[in-house]
Design a protein around this nucleic acid. Structure first.
Lengths: 346, 346
DNA sequence: TTGTAGGCGTTATCAG
DNA sequence: CTGATAACGCCTACAA
């Protein structure tokens, strides 16, 4: 009736062609279009051709959201919760997961939480609202209860880089404790008597495990442990190392650095002080240009990419067989020597 | 009739409560539940309370897929296409995008393509099938036509780290050419006469830009350019550098490395040969432990995180106003000296 | 081989 | 303020 209305401000957003439009265009029923789209059998070549033509002309793309609603089983979607996609370690875990899932045609919906409990819970709930078919949780911290609840509900879920006690779900971790013990033991075996451990916040599962490994090594050689905890940034690590080096009361002959960021800080401090030959370092993950650095460095080399792949494989298995027994995968992190290793305590 | 059937192999997958179940539980209509869930006005406190109780008891979570189908505007979803989530540069771009979108409550569906055209196209089509409300494409290569088509259709889309010629869409890039020119110019200004450029595959947009910057600098000082192209891996960079160092016929006094991976390889080769004071290096992105390394290093410091943020902001703007004019953002990449810079050509 | 009816879970419309 | 009823786009059933 009223024609005075201003035209809507250009719809702009292209409304994609729908299946019924394709059906009309091709002069067939929706079901026939559906059959062609999904490559079902029992479709006459003639009809198929007409439908395909209509699809091409209209630029039709099926709507996965609708498909997911109606179809069973739905096109699979996986939720991924991680601390920080830019952290080199987790970035590789992510790629491991992604590579396995992508090959199977699964789509990932991911998010970083920076370890903030609120964001972690928020993300988890969002993923649930998307009705993801499975969840991969890398180093979650503030949403234990939610995770436990989901697992108890039967949601396929794999934990990475962290063990949730008393929770029967697939879990993939590194050999944190054993590798740490081996690394520290290596230092002791080389004659060092004063091996200080720079550790992170023990409330973080991996940090606690690595610290435990250090203690085990000390116990093996009957040496009193010497630990600096709460070292969770590069800056703190550098500061702590400076104190250790500057105060004659300390004088460590070797340092066990329990995390790559700690290692970065410790290396910086060592270099500042020109202490290049009286300390050996241990770290996790790779040390860039380690070969070019003094002092000698031995690295517990984790395999984040492999961990991610393994996690994805576990998840796929569970999607196929929800009753499969939960499995704990401990991925071996071997000790690698990035220098000759001939340094002796000074 | 027939009761001999074996029980289905345990449904396992938890069937979430639906809105109508909540409605029944609370003794209200679906619409009322919907109102409460979406925090709409005009709901009596009494009814709201009953509904909330029912929601809690049943552990109800709305289904975003269904919501997306029925609602307008739909809960927003963004598709993200990148080359490699584990590449430190792109990982930071990703975080930049994610941080901005997450704060606005938007969800990202992302995927890595490793630069493979087929996977890139596949991913793009999948994202379209999910009816994402916008697209962020970081360094796409093999799907130009698809991207162009989407843009022409009016799909909000932002390109990162690459310019698609003649395509009017928001684009965010670094000052590749100008920064390269400045970096090379810096070397010339310091007295170097033989500055070799280790460049990647010029078919990659950024590589071509940086190479162009090198050429501009050469032209400015009237020096013949000296370029090694196709250096696209750490290994190739190391090999190329070894050749340059070992063959007396070459003898560069400075190297311009146009990419961080190239830099890694070049640094390795330099260290191997013990050439610590006769070469200066340029690279992109940060160089770990650069201060501790010989030789002197000057870095064109890109800001991938900032690029990601900017891209996300552009996308948000376009979602609000589809008619906004396409914008090209060139993020400045300043030249930083990681050593004293006092090295002179030997 | 093809088509019709019904439903997936939610929101929009328009009555009470 | 509240609630039927019709979409949304697709798929599963069950005919024809």
């Amino acid at each position: 009736m009223i024609a005075m209305e201003t035209a809507p401000p250009t719809p702009q957003r292209p409304r994609r062609a729908t299946m019924s439009e394709v059906a009309a265009r091709a002069g067939v029923s929706m079901k026939s279009v559906s059959r062609v789209v999904n490559g079902e059998a029992h479709v006459s070549p003639d009809l198929a051709t007409r439908v395909e033509a209509a699809i091409a002309e209209l630029g039709y793309r099926p709507d996965r959201r609708a498909r997911g609603l109606a179809a069973t089983p739905s096109p699979r979607t996986i939720g991924y919760v991680q601390v920080d996609a830019a952290n080199p370690f987790f970035a590789r875990v992510y790629r491991g997961v992604e590579d396995v899932l992508q090959r199977r045609g699964l789509v990932m919906i991911a998010g970083s939480t920076d370890g903030e409990a609120a964001r972690e819970r928020q993300l988890l709930e969002t993923l649930i609202e998307f009705r993801v078919d499975g969840l991969v949780v890398a180093a979650a911290a503030g949403s234990d209860d939610l995770v436990r609840h989901e697992v108890s509900q039967g949601t396929p879920l794999v934990c990475i880089d962290r063990v949730l006690e008393d929770l029967p779900c697939d879990t993939v971790v590194s050999s944190n404790r054993d590798s740490s013990r081996a690394a520290v033991r290596h230092l002791f075996d080389r004659g060092h008597a004063h091996v200080v451990c720079l550790a992170g916040d023990p409330s973080v599962w991996t940090a606690a495990e690595r610290l435990a490994g250090y203690h085990e090594a000390c116990a093996e050689v009957a040496v009193d442990p010497w630990v600096v905890t709460g070292v969770d940034t590069v800056e703190k690590a550098a500061a702590a190392t400076r104190v250790l080096l500057d105060d004659p009361a300390f004088a460590p002959t070797a340092i066990f650095s329990a995390q790559d960021r700690i290692t970065a800080g410790a290396l910086t401090a060592l270099h500042e002080r020109g202490r290049q030959h009286d300390v050996a370092l241990f770290g996790f993950d790779e040390i860039p240009f380690a070969e070019q650095l003094d002092p000698s460095v031995s690295v517990v080399a984790q395999d984040p990419y492999g961990m991610g792949r393994r996690a994805a494989e576990r998840l796929l298995r569970r999607l196929d067989d929800a009753s499969a027994p939960p499995q704990l995968d401990v991925i071996d992190a071997p000790l690698r020597h990035r220098r000759s290793g001939d340094l002796r305590p000074s």
